[in-house]
C-alpha cells in the first residue's frame, strides 16, 4: 500500500497533465503494472471533470453550430478511390455478404450517435454496440480501403474481362460499386456509373477512374432517396461527370 501512497500525489498531477520529467516516466512504468493505480487515475480524471464545471460563460455563437454541421455533412462521403491493388488480387471472395454488411455498417455508423444519447442509461448496450460497429468496420475495410488487395477469380485460361459489381440498398440509399480489369482511359475522361431507374432517365451514380491495375471503387455516391434500380450501366464521360449519358453504354447489368 505504501508504494501506492508514494504515487498518489503524482497521479493527481498526471491526471492534469502537469507531471513532467523523470517523475512522469517512473509513474507511467508503475501504471503499466498496477491496476489499482490505474483505477485511481480514472477517478482523478473524473474529479478533474468537476473542475471544468466551474467554467461558465456565454453560449457558443450560432455560426459555430452551422460550421460544425457543414463539416459533418462533408465528412461521410467517400468518393471513388482508385485502389492500389497488386497484381495478385483477392478480396472478391464472399462479395455479396461482405458488401451487404458494409452498406449496413456505413448507416449504422451514423445511427450510432442517436443511440449514444439514450445509452447514458443503457450503457452496456452502448459498449456492445461499439464493439459490433468495430467488427463491421473491420469487415468493411478490405472492400473500401485503398490498400486492400483485390483478386478476381475466373475460369482457368480465360483472359481477364472488365467486371463491375454494384451493391445497392434502396431503403438506406446506399450504393457500393467495385470494378476490376477496366481498360485505361484517355486523359480528361472517366467512367461514369448510372443507376437505371424503373422509370425515367438514368441517374448519375458516381464517376471513377481505374488505377494502374484497372480497379476502382465507388462508395455511397449522392443519389435521390428511394430510387428503384432496374439496372446499372457504365459509360465514358468527361472526368467532371455528366448529368446524362453522352456515349454508348459500355457495360450494363440488371438485378440478380
Amino acid at each position: 500500500m505504501s508504494e501506492h501512497e508514494q504515487y498518489a500525489e503524482d497521479l493527481a498531477l498526471y491526471a492534469l497533465h502537469a507531471l513532467t520529467g523523470a517523475d512522469r516516466e517512473k509513474l507511467e512504468q508503475h501504471l503499466a503494472n498496477c491496476a489499482s493505480c490505474r483505477l485511481e487515475l480514472e477517478q482523478l480524471r473524473g474529479d478533474t471533470a468537476l473542475l471544468a464545471l466551474s467554467a461558465a460563460g456565454p453560449r457558443p455563437p450560432q455560426r459555430a453550430r452551422k460550421r460544425l454541421l457543414e463539416a459533418i455533412a462533408r465528412e461521410p462521403r467517400i468518393v471513388a478511390t482508385p485502389s492500389g491493388a497488386r497484381r495478385t488480387w483477392w478480396g472478391w471472395l464472399g462479395w455479396a455478404a461482405t458488401a451487404a454488411v458494409l452498406v449496413f455498417a456505413l448507416s449504422l455508423w451514423r445511427e450510432n450517435f442517436a443511440l449514444k444519447e439514450t445509452l447514458a442509461s443503457a450503457s452496456s448496450t452502448a459498449a456492445e454496440n461499439a464493439r459490433q460497429l468495430e467488427e463491421l468496420r473491420k469487415i468493411a475495410a478490405p472492400i473500401i480501403e485503398p490498400e486492400a488487395q483485390r483478386v478476381t477469380l475466373v475460369a482457368a485460361k480465360t483472359p481477364p474481362q472488365p467486371q463491375g459489381k454494384a451493391f445497392y440498398l434502396r431503403k438506406r440509399n446506399s450504393l457500393v460499386f467495385l470494378a476490376n480489369n477496366m481498360p485505361a482511359l484517355p486523359p480528361q475522361k472517366a467512367y461514369e456509373l448510372w443507376l437505371i431507374p424503373t422509370s425515367g432517365a438514368p441517374i448519375p451514380a458516381g464517376v471513377f477512374k481505374p488505377d494502374a491495375h484497372g480497379s476502382a471503387t465507388v462508395v455511397n455516391p449522392p443519389l435521390p432517396a428511394g430510387a428503384e434500380a432496374k439496372a446499372f450501366a457504365i459509360t465514358v464521360e468527361d472526368e467532371a461527370g455528366s448529368p446524362a449519358p453522352t456515349t454508348p453504354v459500355l457495360m450494363m447489368g440488371a438485378g440478380e
Binding site: T48, A52, W109, A120, A127
Partner: peptide, 19 residues
Amino acid sequence: RNPSAFDAARGNLGSWLAV
C-alpha cells in the same frame, strides 16, 4: 468520426467532453 472513443459504460458524455 470516432463515436466508439466514448465508452458510456465508464462515465457520462458531458464529463467526458469536458475533460
